[in-house]
Design a protein around this nucleic acid. Structure first.
Lengths: 240, 240
DNA sequence: CAGTGGTCTAGACCACCAC
DNA sequence: TGGTGGTCTAGACCACTGC
């Protein structure tokens, strides 16, 4: 009811690919047939397939048809998708993830942070350092800044659970987008202490700016993990 | 003539944003007006805006309008976009990039490579190691494998110029998509020798599988750069 | 309430591919 | 030459926003 038709069509086709009804390297039924089968217009089928193509499940070619792509051989469990946000709890299972609060305070932003969060010097921000623990192992060390005016009443209790759940469910704010930068960095004393990294180990850092659907920036953060525990992946599908 | 209308509309709107005609944080004219102005249907305008939204220039909200987003404060010149392929020459300027061939030979693939490239043990592959040099500085060390049957007649001359130009222009093959994995790694002897990395410096590695528009895999590669010279970025726009 | 963007349709023409 | 997906239109209804 609430889901748009193209989404339901996409989900059904995804299901069939996963079930092997549409096998890898074979050609899908053409858009007109699918439209007829699902009782929708061809444009709606096309929209569904556009999404699946961006997600890397299929490849469309004019004049030929739509091909089911196979599974990707370098894909591993350590991979985190870089261009599609999912909280750690959702990604790895709520029961596998705990959080340890290392720092939680309030301060005025320095010049850099004012620029990053697009706020004035007199608008206070939270500074949060959290260690995310996965199945008992230190996993990601997060250093986060958020403007207080956008995210009121944050508490340690919320930080121990999920910030994003609080923002979405309680504050009813909607996520708009994020700019993420992935870099390799040297371990500092925090990484060595909390992530149990060795002195000369490389670390993978994700620096990001996140904004709400109204365009207001609500987070600047840097997250680090050990080089041997987590990678980031992206899918490049040549479509506009 | 050859460009679709939605692309021309998107380009024109992009131009206006860059020129400041549509300033950051202001609301764009509504889709109906734009459709009228450009002499196209509203759906065509929407398609153009969808693309600009995925590219991070604007944000649309039903019931409100379309907002122009500002420039991103953490964006820097070291950033390479991770989910949209552009060759190094195109990205940094043909005149700034040269290539040094370190290894170029032919071999049978081992089991892992057979899996990665989806080929049999008796189908030979090229092994290519190239150092890409940017403005005289060692920049990226590429280790590439390609099946010979897909990319015939490769030569050192082509490698010194651009493999992708050869594939596109001469072989008339079209790029389909890529799965990319970004990780932090320790420097090995090649990195120290060619990238002039220090012994304990971290390196950023991009491991990727690339396929053609017919679904055939034509490249498996690992590219490394020094941690202080290049980062990867992605844009997460919450849209299907 | 009026105005916005989101979705959806039926029908049309085109470029491209394989035969 | 027939079939594929890509593009485009005009018109319609919906959910959501702000007033």
């Amino acid at each position: 009811m609430s889901q748009p038709k193209y989404k339901r069509v996409a989900d059904e086709i995804t299901q069939r690919i996963n079930d092997g009804v549409y096998a890898p390297k074979t050609i899908l039924p053409d858009q007109k047939s699918l439209a007829k089968e699902f009782g929708v217009s061809r444009l709606t089928v096309k929209k569904a397939l556009d999404g699946l193509e961006r997600a890397g499940l299929i490849y469309k070619q004019s004049g030929l048809g739509t091909v089911v792509l196979g599974t990707i051989p370098i894909k591993s469990e350590q991979d985190a998708v870089a261009d599609c946000f999912t909280g750690l709890q959702k990604q790895l299972g709520k029961e596998n993830v705990t959080s340890k609060i290392i720092k939680f305070n309030v301060q005025f932003p320095d010049e850099e942070l004012q620029k990053y969060l697009d706020i004035k010097a007199n608008e206070p921000v939270y500074e949060i350092i959290r260690l995310r623990v996965y199945k008992g192992q230190p996993y990601v060390l997060e250093h986060t800044f958020m403007p207080i005016k956008l995210i009121p009443n944050l508490s340690e209790k919320i930080l121990e659970d999920s910030i994003y759940t609080y923002i979405h469910k309680k504050l009813k704010l909607k996520f708009g987008g994020a700019y993420r930068k992935i870099k390799a960095v040297k371990a500092d004393k925090y990484d060595i202490e909390y992530l149990e990294a060795k002195k000369d180990d490389p670390l993978l850092e994700l620096e990001q700016i996140v904004w709400l659907n109204n365009g207001q920036t609500f987070e600047y953060s840097r997250s680090r993990n050990r080089y041997d525990t987590r990678n980031y992946v992206v899918l490049d599908t040549n479509n506009f």
